[in-house]
Computed example of a mutant assay.
Amino acid sequence: MKQPAGVILAGGQSRRMGGGDKGLLRLGGETLLERVIARLEPQVAELALNANGDASRFDVNLPVVADSVAEFPGPLAGVLAGLDWAAERGHTHIVTAAADTPFFPCDLVPRLMLAAEEAPIALAATPDPERGMARHPTFGLWPVALRDDLRAALADGVRKVVAWTDRHGTAMARFEAEPFDPFFNVNTPEDMTRAEGLL
């Protein structure tokens, strides 16, 4: 597998944060989005941002691709937008990361690629005391070849990531959750306070 393209998912509505773009919140002098770009860009062939609305508000030197499915159907729409963009650029795979997760691993992509030797899709996962392993569905490796299948699934009303990925076989790339879960994401003002402490 050649180096995948990267897509940062920033298409959510941030209801628990009071609306707006969580990725533009500042953490230690940088926006969450800038921190995500700095972690993902060195790991991928090229990088795009998935977001809806006026792209100029992000002020980043990246292509911005909008969802092609209306009414904010969730992260799968962002994955599809990324797959369509990557297909036009000649890529065979994309890796996605969430725009509100500033501490994800700097070896995310190679470990997802290794896991994907076992299945078409690979998702990041960390140990969870209740569920065994908790999958992080916005951090995945996705083959461009499945984009039409995903488009059809969204048209049929599928919204949950794992409801679609489980149809195709999904490997887990396991990451440790000590001293904290690296896929911790900022959803609320309290999470932002915690992120400042983790810095």
Rank of each mutant, 00 (worst) to 15 (best):
W142F: 15
T92H: 02
I94D: 08
A125E: 08
N187F: 09
P179F: 05
L154E: 05
L47M: 09
F58E: 07
M192Q: 03
E190P: 00
V44E: 06
L49C: 08
V64L: 07
D54S: 10
Q3W: 03
L40M: 14
D54F: 02
V65A: 10
A119W: 02
N50F: 07
H136T: 11
T126P: 06
L33V: 09
L40T: 07
A195Q: 02
H93L: 09
G29V: 10
M192P: 02
V36S: 05
D21E: 15
K22M: 13
P4R: 02
D148T: 14
P42K: 07
G12H: 12
G157E: 01
L24A: 06
L199F: 03
V186F: 01
R131S: 13
G90S: 11
G53F: 10
G20T: 08
D156C: 09
A48F: 07
D181A: 05
R194M: 11
A70L: 15
R16N: 11
P105W: 02
A171N: 07
W164C: 01
D100A: 10
T126G: 04
A10D: 14
A51D: 12
H168L: 11
G53M: 13
C106I: 15
S56Y: 01
H168D: 02
E118W: 01
A124F: 03
Q43C: 08
P4E: 04
L83E: 08
A86S: 10
G197D: 10
E71R: 15
E30M: 13
L24W: 03
V65M: 12
W164N: 00
A116P: 10
Q13L: 15
A171I: 08
L25F: 04
